[in-house]
Amino acid sequence: MVRLITHNLLACHAKGCTSNNFPLQFQNVQIELKEAEFNPTFLETFMPKLEWKALVDSAKEASATISRYILGNTSLPLEQPEMLDEEFLKNLHHVLLEIHVEEGIMICPNCKHNYPISNGIPNMLLAEHEIG
């Protein structure tokens, strides 16, 4: 699966594609929801590693493809809050760890390279001539 936590770590690495190559944009995605164990300590240690704006935008993209009733709450504040209350952490947990993209495409915002996701595995391989 491509969870949003992992998606937040993937960038286009095609030859010459070094700016505006992140985050990859989802298209035609199929999503599965899977419950994960809530672990506030993990979320707090991981937060500094996140590209926050990318996460907020990708959560929005995901929620555009599937009804909010099914997807649950994916709204995140535009800035990382300083006080981490339970409600915020629960939402973050859901967005990062419980939304699994199983099928679809991730498109580089810069060079438009398509990275397909099939059966939950993102194919990030490039042909020899495409590698920088």
Partner: peptide
Amino acid sequence: VTLDAIQTSFTQALHSRLKNS
């Protein structure tokens, strides 16, 4: 154990985001 498997050579697609991490 949830393993997030990514098809890529070494860490290519992850490299820029995983520096020092």
